[in-house]
Design a protein around this nucleic acid. Structure first.
Lengths: 274, 274
DNA sequence: GCTTGTGTGTTCGGATCTGTTCGTTTCTGT
DNA sequence: ACAGAAACGAACAGATCCGAACACACAAGC
């Protein structure tokens, strides 16, 4: 493996995973850690990535920012667990929709690393997700973008998005949410995004909401789905007991993903058994 | 194995693998490393590949995209000059469309750095352009994405894109092209992309084609515009004299941007005056 | 025959890259 | 706060690659 190939490998890894470890890269590329270190140093000098202890993180990625602070690294851990747990709802050959936001972005990352990605068709209104799939060079995956006006968070919304979505049909949709309100449902601050989320839900057989525990504390403007509309809500194990109970009153299926679990992110907690 | 056979072998290898090692090539083709070295040197002089320690890498591959600032500075220099020259066709408050490709990407970069960006509305079928504008946090710019199926080069094409485009209207469109064929017009390898480019042209008052001089040597499958349809073609000053003359026979306005010029990229060459 | 030119292989000193060692710094669990 | 573990980077040594120079083979032309 040639030097520039290694660098490309590293950059691609960064684009799809947001962060890389030197030890992993060393093993996967079959070179010493020192060589990887030197590659990363070089790339960092060119501003292509940012060095951190143990590896490197992407500078341009959506996740780059949160990864820097220690506090929100925990958040990413939760999101990661949620994403892994949500994978179980993807079946081979499905046509799935993925909404905007960082949680669904992490979900897309995990999905691309899994074996289920083969033969999927992905509809998304998130430009980062679209680029992610493309950059991963995953085979047998078709990506369709909804179009629309670009929001602050790189989601595509508005009449154009809604109209495109309305002419399509998917097996399941995976959405993030800005706020979970009991007992109303799921909300977002942007009413156009709410409309687009609702459009995605209306064309989907199954609806899955990905929301870490902090979302229960937020409040937002626009409702895009009731609790009942979600076939499953995937959150993390840090959600307080009483909120779990009250949420279960409205939601058909509430999954608590464990950040420590290595397999599918769902730990062996009693409350996971219905 | 004859010299030209070897060169083809090397280029093919590059196309499929992105990078090659001299030692490998030497063994596989049954010639000494020195011969391979000479072949690669020759191909590099022709711009067919880029030499690196230990082998060679493809110039057109993914390498070009992430490493804009690093290498192939000449290519980027040309594209940059073209992009700066094209800025003159953007008026304040315009609604403009920007197509896919690396040249238009550089154009978008320049546009965001200029003062003209204020109040613009940008329609694009390129997800990198969309993200670029969003990431720049430019104020007063609205970005609309066409939607559609994502191609290898991160452009959005197909019926969805065409339908969305058909319902809109813009002042001017800026398109890259894979090939300039005299006297036919502008071509791209992807017929769906050709259709989408044609759709963009059909909704635009003015059409501007950005093409560096190498595009005159390429050949492609699908025509998306005739020479006449372009209100202006912006290329670089390295385009040979006779091609300039022959192109001027079909195109209303051919601009030769000078890579050295610091202002708007159009040098004071006699042939720039009509 | 000889010459010339082209293309290829070999040698070799220097440049560049890579791996290992080892003392230091930084993380992490208790 | 502390100790052990992991990661870091400087420095050295070995491996690899590079390119210039020269030698050789072969074909074309005189």
């Amino acid at each position: 493996m040639i030097a520039s190939q290694r660098r490309l490998f590293i950059l691609n890894r960064l684009r799809t995973q947001g962060a890389v470890r030197i030890a992993d890269l060393s093993e996967e590329m079959g070179v010493s850690t020192m060589t990887v270190r030197r590659d990363i140093t070089e790339l960092a000098d060119q501003g292509m990535l940012r060095r951190v202890h143990g590896g490197a993180v992407s500078t341009s990625s959506l996740l780059a920012e949160p990864l820097f602070s220690v506090k929100s690294r925990m958040d990413v851990g939760f999101k990661d667990a949620i994403a892994r747990a949500a994978l179980r709802f993807v079946r081979p050959g499905d046509v799935i929709a993925i909404g905007g936001g960082t949680t669904t972005y992490v979900f897309a990352q995990r999905l691309l690393q899994s074996s289920k990605v083969e033969g999927l068709t992905i509809l998304t209104n998130s430009t980062p997700v679209a680029e992610l799939v493309q950059a991963s060079e995953a085979h047998g995956v078709e990506v369709i973008v909804t179009g629309g006006v670009v929001t602050r968070s790189n989601a595509l919304v508005g009449p154009i998005a809604d109209r495109v979505i309305g002419s399509l049909r998917v097996n399941s949709v995976f959405l993030g949410t800005h706020s979970v309100s009991l007992p109303r449902g799921f909300l977002t601050p942007n009413s156009l995004e709410a409309s687009t989320n609702a459009a995605l839900i209306s064309i989907s057989d199954k609806v899955y909401i990905l929301a870490d525990h902090s979302k229960w504390q937020n409040t937002s403007l626009s409702l895009f789905a009731s609790l009942r509309q979600a076939d499953a809500v995937i959150t993390d194990s840090a959600l307080p007991e009483d909120l779990v109970r009250r949420t279960r009153q409205g939601v058909r299926n509430l999954l608590l993903a464990d950040a420590d679990a290595s397999d599918d992110g769902v730990g062996d907690h009693p409350q996971n058994r219905k």
